[in-house]
């Protein structure tokens, strides 16, 4: 996943798309008052500068699917682990709710179901049948819409009539709900190993020049909290700031 912060305008369409796609409970007033409202992808908004030269900065934060995920080694029951696609996956049935992974996530993108999720009667039928409705007492998080990934794989297999491999599964065959909903195309999803994938150059660049050689990077790419060496699989592209860009006024 690549997130272009220059394109993000903080519209929260991705948040709503995720909420609907992944059967997240509705964040009502009580949830906010209890500080228990959660979104698998959230838009963090930071204000910069003083009035009247004030700017809003937006950063969408979702599970970073770290290669060195700090949440994984601390789970006593292997409810969270790395699968061979490089995704950090959560097995809801195994989770006992120790919440150690939540503490150990530097990105704060793991969420605990304090209450049993409830939907109004008229919304019961809008639940996505491909996604488990999580019970109370367990931890959940962004899956990069693994149900869409699986559906894409099945379709490719049917269409190609054969084995699934890197050649047949193109990056464009599936996308997470947030990527699909983003009106400015700020989010791009793809396979790092696919040469045709639009995310590949960014990953190559960021992987080639680590945090100590950040200045040498050719692209705007960086990882959040890179100094923790969690090696996230989400790359952010810096905002192009006309005021910082050495006199180029847009």
């Amino acid at each position: 996943m690549v997130v272009d912060l220059d394109r993000c305008n903080g519209c929260q369409a991705c948040v709503i798309a995720c909420q609907v796609e992944n059967n997240l409970p509705i964040n009502d007033k009580n949830a906010f008052l209890q500080n228990r409202a959660y979104e698998w992808i959230r838009i963090e908004r930071y204000w910069e500068g003083d009035y009247p030269n004030i700017k809003a900065r937006f950063i969408p934060v979702m599970c970073q699917h770290c290669e060195n995920a700090p949440c994984e080694p601390v789970c006593p029951v292997f409810a969270t682990y790395h699968n061979d696609e490089g995704l950090n996956v959560q097995i809801y049935n195994r989770c006992v709710g120790t919440r150690y992974c939540i503490n150990n996530c530097p990105y704060q993108v793991r969420f605990f179901n304090y209450w049993h999720p409830n939907w109004p009667e008229r919304l019961q039928n809008q639940l996505n049948p491909d996604v488990t409705v999580r019970t109370r007492g367990i931890t959940e998080k962004c899956t990069f819409c693994i149900q869409r990934l699986r559906r894409g794989q099945i379709q490719v297999e049917r269409r190609a009539g054969g084995e699934l491999n890197d050649g047949t599964l193109k990056s464009g065959n599936h996308m997470p709900a947030c990527v699909q909903a983003c009106p400015t195309n700020a989010l791009t999803f793809g396979d790092q190993n696919d040469v045709h994938s639009p995310v590949k150059p960014y990953f190559e660049d960021v992987n080639r020049y680590n945090i100590h050689h950040e200045k040498e990077r050719k692209t705007r790419g960086y990882r959040v909290l890179e100094e923790m060496n969690t090696k996230p699989n989400v790359i952010y592209l810096k905002k192009v700031d006309p005021n910082l860009g050495g006199g180029h006024h847009g």
């Binding site: 209890q34 409202a37 919440r99 939540i102 704060q108 304090y114 049993h116 109370r136 007492g137």
Partner: peptide
């Protein structure tokens, strides 16, 4: 459910 406690999103313990 644990909602009856005061635990919340950043404060899980």
């Amino acid at each position: 459910g644990l909602g009856v406690t005061g635990l919340n999103r950043p404060v899980a313990w």
